[in-house]
Nucleic acid binder design. Structure first.
Lengths: 161, 161
DNA sequence: GCTTGCGTTCGAGTGCGCTCGAACTCCTAG
DNA sequence: CTAGGAGTTCGAGCGCACTCGAACGCAAGC
């Protein structure tokens, strides 16, 4: 009984956490494509909220190829950036580095591997859905516990009327 | 444009992944309480889908106290099991071991620490919500990619009419 | 011309959360 | 009486995904 209530509230809460961000981020994902100038490593790092160290690491293990400028510095073109955006999205949803390496190896092999890549994506989609399920349960459990401790169950723990 | 569509479908998908499971799991969370006999380590391990090794590890680092039977074997009473269920829920939602140790230390100190525990839970709730947000974006991104590869975007990749 | 700062390569180190193996004990069934 | 299986403790090892430090290069500004 009470669990249904908790679940509904849990799901409803999805819309309330920093709203405008989502649109920005998903557009980042699609838009970066067209006509961007090559970026430096720190620019990309800032864009993706990761460290230059990590970007070099990703390159080292073969996830992206990155061109160099005249003085040997990395120069990230639109394609590299797009790939990195995709990589971070996949990482954030828990895809293992090993799987990303596999996927990118396939991507580098050309269109023949599209079916296999599709399989990987479909599998990963299911994984994400399972995670969403688990997380939603955990949210419900957490809110349940909060309720037993007498906490208010508003949209956020901070800055609240 | 298309992103709205993707987002809706992503959210709608939440209800479709192994439906009955959710109820069972959340009831596990609440129900196990009342009148259960003490359990052996393998029984608990099976219940929580983890290894005996891990259960001993959790005890070692102070997350649970577990009684012993006459022959020195662990005997998990209802309280211990309830705590472990909670622990696994929190772990599954990404709470760090360190934070769980902190939380459980507080829990062991008695009711005076309820406010602090409440704070931790509220903070964790926000973390879960952020994760849900990220995951939902990743799901949308994945489905977008699947669509560009010409994949059908049904509820699951397997066994479908 | 020298400092400052951003970049480079390379290999090694870190933190997390388990995971395992060895050596041992205890109980039960045959 | 013995063999098997489930449990115990202890410390060490592992896989993952970074993360860092050292030593160096280049180019601009004072």
């Amino acid at each position: 009984m009470a669990t249904d209530d908790l679940m509904s509230r849990a799901l409803a809460a999805l819309d309330e956490v920093d709203g405008p961000m989502s649109v920005e981020v998903i557009h980042r994902l699609v838009d970066v494509g067209a006509a961007t100038d090559p970026m430096t490593i720190t620019e990309v790092a800032d864009l993706l909220d990761m460290s230059p160290h990590t970007l070099r690491y990703y390159e080292r293990i073969g996830l992206v190829e990155v061109a160099r400028d005249a003085s040997g510095h990395r120069s990230y073109d639109a394609q590299a950036v797009r790939r990195l955006v995709f990589l971070t999205r996949m990482r954030l949803s828990g895809m293992a580095m090993r799987d990303l390496q596999h996927y990118m190896r396939l991507a580098d092999e050309g269109d023949d591997t599209v079916p296999e890549r599709l399989d990987l994506l479909l599998e990963h989609r299911d994984t994400i859905r399972r995670q969403l399920k688990e997380l939603t349960l955990s949210l419900a459990a957490t809110e349940y516990k909060i309720a037993t401790y007498g906490g208010h169950t508003g949209p956020s723990s901070a800055g609240q009327a």
